[in-house]
Amino acid sequence: MRTTVSILGCGWLGTALGRSLLRKGWKVKGSVASTQSYNRLEVSGISAFYVKAKAQSLTVDYNSFFNTDVLIISIPPTRTDCVEDSYPKKIEQVIAKVEELNIKKVLFISSTSVYESKNAEVKEGDEGTPEKASGRALLKAEKLLLDNPAFQTTVIRFGGLIGYDRNPARFVQGKNTPVFDAPVNLIHRDDCINIITQIIEKNIWGEVFNASSPEHPGRNEFYAKAAKISDMPIPVFSKDKGSYKVINSDKLIEALDFKFAYQSPMDYLKEVEEWAYRI
């Protein structure tokens, strides 16, 4: 029997995930919140729906979007969400629809920003008080989902997303202050898609997983090389690490018997170099 998956938020990750699941023979529904994105999604082959989550309401063109075996929530907080603390309220609106239509499995895409920078390695359970408002908003949203007994939720906390058209050299262009030499916590989109797919296939629910490449080169090494091979200005770097954290993904690796295609973010820079060379 084919699995039906609905992806709430088909952006850069969600659309690529949907295409991958389609190739595996799954039925995939995807949501967007603008007409332009709707047209783009239709062309991809994913069944397109309009869903817009607000703090006080959830606008849905067709409830059939929520007729699914698994709901993947991939809508990150915006700056407005964080300032007004409205993001958890948006998730509450989604939860109400999940309960109404009796969805039993939810996969929530979160971020490693939920961790406090403790200048040390962090595992699931080491959250502390995140410095960023987005991290605090995500942590509240995670709790709302995980604590709800009406359905099972698994949370994936991804590191910074890289791959394909996301050239990391652009992340540090135009910096007016030196870039701290903290360890990087990054993950390639291909690994993200494989992790999500395996969690669904292996029916792993009620868990929280960190997901970041196991190796963590320093920002100086990583971004200097990215800028050099992309023929971009190399930013000024500091020897100081600043405040940082190192994301430990051992729980995920053990639970899924998972092998990262990109053990280190440096592996992706080989592709960036090849791409730059071809151009």
Results as ranks from 00 to 15, higher is better:
Val5Pro: 07
Ile7Lys: 10
Ile7Cys: 12
Leu8Gln: 03
Leu8Pro: 05
Cys10Lys: 05
Leu21Ser: 07
Leu22Met: 15
Val28Asp: 01
Leu41Trp: 06
Glu42Ser: 11
Glu42Val: 15
Lys52Gln: 05
Lys54His: 04
Gln56Ser: 14
Val60Asp: 01
Leu71Thr: 00
Ile73Glu: 00
Arg79Gly: 04
Tyr87Met: 03
Lys90Ala: 00
Ser117Cys: 05
Asn119Lys: 11
Glu121Ile: 14
Glu124Ser: 10
Glu124Phe: 13
Thr129Lys: 15
Glu131Met: 09
Lys132Thr: 04
Ala137Leu: 13
Ala141Asp: 07
Glu142Cys: 09
Phe151Ser: 00
Gln152Asp: 04
Val155Trp: 08
Asn167Lys: 03
Ala169Pro: 00
Ala182Lys: 04
Pro183Asp: 01
Leu186Arg: 00
Thr197Gly: 02
Gln198Tyr: 04
Asn203His: 06
Trp205Met: 05
Gly206Asp: 08
Glu207Arg: 07
Ala211Tyr: 00
Pro214Ser: 06
Phe222Val: 03
Ala224Ile: 04
Lys225Thr: 10
Lys228Cys: 08
Ser230Gly: 11
Ser238Val: 12
Asp240Val: 10
Lys245Asn: 05
Val246Cys: 14
Ile247Asn: 02
Ile247Ser: 03
Asp250Phe: 03
Lys251Cys: 05
Ile253Thr: 09
Ile253Phe: 13
Glu254Thr: 09
Glu273Gly: 04
